[in-house]
Design a protein around this nucleic acid. Sequence first.
DNA 1: TGGTTAATGATAAGCATTATCATTAACCAC
DNA 2: GTGGTTAATGATAATGCTTATCATTAACCA
Lengths: 152, 152
Amino acid sequence: MHKPASDNAQDIHSSGLKATWPRIRILRLFQQTTQRHLSAEDVYRSLLADGEEIGLATIYRVLTQFEQARLLTRHYFESGKAVYELNEGQHHDHLVCMICGRVEEFFDPEIERLQQQIAERRGFELREHALSLYGVCSNPACQAKAWAESRG
Amino acid sequence: MHKPASDNAQDIHSSGLKATWPRIRILRLFQQTTQRHLSAEDVYRSLLADGEEIGLATIYRVLTQFEQARLLTRHYFESGKAVYELNEGQHHDHLVCMICGRVEEFFDPEIERLQQQIAERRGFELREHALSLYGVCSNPACQAKAWAESRG
DNA sequence: TGGTTAATGATAAGCATTATCATTAACCAC
DNA sequence: GTGGTTAATGATAATGCTTATCATTAACCA
């Protein structure tokens, strides 16, 4: 069902990092959690709830390292704080509910192609992009809340 | 050539805000500057250089108010700090040079259409979106620096 | 023109994140 | 396996951007 911790240690090792206990636990959390997108604080709390007292400084450091090692990818979603998700190869963009915070993923090859074309036309060598759509999801509670907000 | 300050005061007034001196100067800065995208700190420094001692707290407050009044729009560009630009009606997205920070604007109706379509298919009512492309611009200095960075 | 009420500015507080540094634990050679 | 080297950790201080507080000041309207 889940990757065992040892595979986990392999992944970390082959990224040129020592397979320390905090790093193993953090990576495992991303592999096992149902909530794909986690902030540093989320990771800290989850591990603590699981009896793992890992310092917040370590969490921040490891998340940054994992991002550089391409084990995780980072996003901002306009919230003022970074969230990370497991990098499973296929690139995708995000659709975020402004009410409940739910995040859906999508991939549109045509949009990707157009982006590349726009960059090329302007002499930019495209390295990465951030595309996030913000709206109100199909949950009736969200639609009700959105409607209430719109009328002050 | 430039809008006179009085028009300026009109815009502020019709947004339901008092036409105070700090607000007039801040809006004028955005209308006159060549650098379209300014952070709170940028605004503070520019006005100071122009002999205008406006408190940083006021700058932050006014930028937020102008954004709510749709006189300005806010962006993040992954930099950890907000930048604002004059809202002149037509929506556009951004192409940002990761080396020199230069920002170009673009608009692609096809991308806009596809975004709308994606949101609809998933039952989202699209409210806004953030699309920023990051790369290396055509400036030879940037390309050289990017190349140097890529090899540590 | 004066009174009311909101705006300002100095400063403190807040929040996410990074830096510092003494202690601890992984790894590699033996 | 064991020990020594070197990097990782964790507590905490520091930073950077932004918002809150509150006494003082200035816009607006009657």
